[in-house]
Amino acid sequence: MTGMERLIIIGMVLLGTLLTRFLPFLVFPTGKPVPPYIRYLGRVLPGAVFGMLVIYCLKDIQWLQSGHGLPELLSLGVVLGLQSWRRQMLLSIAGGTACHMLLVQYIF
């Protein structure tokens, strides 16, 4: 990818972020009622999008090659275990990442 193409990608991400932040204030300027369909999406969309993002992060696992996804699955277990135990987001992220780095660097 050229430098210009990279800037375009960053610009697109910036544009998308600006759109999602400013749109409600442009569409509902003075307390216009929010349509029920939009309110419904506000309730159900986050869970589905987070689920999709988890799959997005795992999309490049090579299930048939060395490791067979084991470093990822074990580290996922560490993340979920730490999070249900202590509920400290940073601890869970740091612990899972450290586990993954150890596994791919020394074991698999």
């Binding site: 990608i9 999602t20 932040r21 409600p24 309110r39 999008v49």
Partner: peptide, 23 residues
């Protein structure tokens, strides 16, 4: 690969929650 529209679409979906923060 260079995919600006897909980048925009992903951003809109990931940040869609901001719409509801805004509301």
């Amino acid at each position: 690969p260079f995919a600006p529209l897909s980048a925009l679409a992903i951003t809109l979906m990931v940040n869609a929650r901001h719409l509801f923060y805004g509301i």
